[in-house]
Design a protein around this nucleic acid. Structure first.
Lengths: 341, 341
DNA sequence: CTGTTAGCGCGTTCAG
DNA sequence: CTGAACGCGCTAACAG
């Protein structure tokens, strides 16, 4: 690659003039500008982002650390972040923590060393606040927390209205006659999951709270065992899974136990599955605005860089409740299909 | 952040010694090394990747351009690339072309300007070879083509054995009695899709080739129209969709036309849907080893960087044929369920 | 074994 | 309006 020096020489100007032409940072006589442009064209010159970053101490890049790049919801967030970043002329440096706090820490460290202008973080489950606070101590790069949002966090955050949507979902299901639920709540160290569980409690009257079954074990095997046990004990007319992985376990348990949805039990899931409408049973789903959350995170990050002193904001994007046949009122269905008495 | 100068001063050594301690690039007396380590610890110093890249003219980063970051198959490739990169101490710079050649070109340009050590590219449909050749001309950075693989490409490539697996699939279906297919083949400018179509031809005897219906329109609306028309004309006993988006269209058409799978028509899809086993109909699927393809791409890239002169390799990873009820032998089923004559 | 020094390619003063 | 010179933080020659 040609450097700025060659362009300058070819155009018969100094390097500084080339730089100013490139960046529009001071007036340049049209004639010289033309010559510079021609030289750039001819040499195929392009600014060296590394040297530029060095000099300006800005990289025009942002770092994103997600906890599971394979999971579709996170993939959509990545997609959204990339989209918003590219639109602003920023490049995206991506790292995956694979739900491992140590890898998360390394990833953050690497990104900081690369001098990204800002950081977007989807914390892994048990990262604690170590990373988050280390960020402040080290050198204060702007940070936005994504999806996994903490009360009283010193950072900007963007999450979903998990608690409210769960409340809405449960209220709807109660309206359809359900009184006893099996909530597959998952790892309560994950804020998202804790919020959803809280929303569940919000929607259940105190008197009935004792009758609800909540599975909050962490590893898949335990979840499976607990769900199987809960299904055997019986009582629940509706299963609510708080994430896609949990829904997978839940549906597997139902299938293996030969329990049909929605005929024998209702089922709803957060995050859910793609193309739910094409397959049976179609699953009632709370859909995250994952792409938009990614975009919003970039937006918050840019605002923060522009005004470092503003007080931190937490954005909650609305989730969509997609009602499908897996939660159709089973009493109603029974009544209809039963022979006329 | 502290710089190397402060560390050197605090340890009472020169910056070069600090550098050599950090990089293990020449022997340092244990005593001084200790002092340096202590100084690093106290200052919280960390190497500046930007300055380092400047000096070494290596960024320890690789660029990845995908054509659709939202699609699960690509998300898995991204995941695989990230994984393999991180394992080698490389960071990943991600860009998305959204199937737009212009954005693809910009992305490549940006990554080159950032001086990534190498580039992994999942070309978008109509990128032509412009980008690919420009890469050679500009400054020869190593490039690996991912998923969308070209015959006689000058670059290393990693794809899947699309042609062979399609042949296997069709052979299996013919064994189950199917003679007339509706192949939803998609945009033939995408090598992956062209290969799959070729595999289809391989498996059909010349005499029967004329009876097959192949839909290779490009935009969704046309595909839908063509599929609907083909279904109406009838004749096909089996639909094969060559990608997830095409499968979506296909299944929607079947649903809207009230045609049941597998009772009335068999169905198979490439790439397919996640958690296919949990929903009905369970779809016979050709699964791409997307994650592994991502890993392999990094591997090829590193090999290329190590030995620039080696002749380019094309890796074809095996796809998995997952047979499910959507292609169960429908004649057999009919015979079974029909009343005994 | 260690220190000195010269750039990597650019943006930005400060003079003209 | 333009050019000369400096330095961002680091590594690699070269010298000791």
């Amino acid at each position: 690659m040609a450097t700025i020096v060659e362009v300058a020489r070819m155009a018969g100007v100094s390097t500084s003039t080339v730089s100013h032409v490139l960046n529009g940072t001071r007036p340049v006589r049209p004639a010289t500008r033309k010559r510079v442009a021609a030289a750039i064209e001819k040499t195929g010159y392009r600014q060296d982002a590394v040297a530029r970053a060095m000099r300006r101490s800005r990289t025009d890049s942002i770092g994103l650390v997600v906890s599971d790049a394979g999971e579709p919801a996170f993939a959509e967030m990545v997609h959204g972040v990339e989209h918003a970043a590219a639109a602003r002329g920023l490049t995206l440096v991506l790292a995956n923590s694979a739900e491992d706090p140590e890898r998360e820490e390394r990833a953050v460290s690497t990104l900081l060393a690369r001098r990204v202008d800002g950081l977007i973080l989807a914390h892994c489950a048990d990262s604690g606040r170590a990373v988050s606070t280390r960020l402040d101590a080290d050198d204060a790069r702007p940070v936005v927390l994504l999806d996994r949002v903490f009360d009283g966090s010193p950072h900007d955050q963007v999450g979903a209205d998990n608690r409210e949507t769960m409340r809405r979902l449960v209220t709807h299901l109660r309206g359809a006659g359900h009184r006893r639920f099996l909530l597959v709540a998952g790892d309560q160290r994950v804020p998202t999951l804790a919020e959803r569980r809280q929303g569940f409690r919000d929607a259940i009257p105190d008197a009935e709270l004792g009758e609800q079954t909540i599975v909050d074990s962490v590893d898949t095997a335990s979840v499976r065992a607990d769900v199987v046990a809960a299904l055997r004990t019986g009582g629940a007319t509706c299963v609510i899974a708080c994430s896609t992985p949990l829904a997978v376990v839940g549906l597997e348990c139902l299938r293996d136990a030969g329990i049909a949805t929605p005929e024998q039990i209702a089922f709803a899931a957060f995050d859910g599955f793609s193309h739910s409408d094409l397959f049976r049973p179609t699953i009632t789903t709370v859909r995250q605005p994952a792409f938009e959350m990614g975009e919003a995170a970039v937006s918050l990050l840019m605002d923060r860089i522009a005004t470092p002193e503003a007080s931190p904001r937490t954005l909650r994007l609305n989730q969509r409740l997609e009602l499908r046949e897996s939660t159709e009122d089973y009493r109603f269905r029974e009544a209809e299909s039963a022979p006329i008495a």
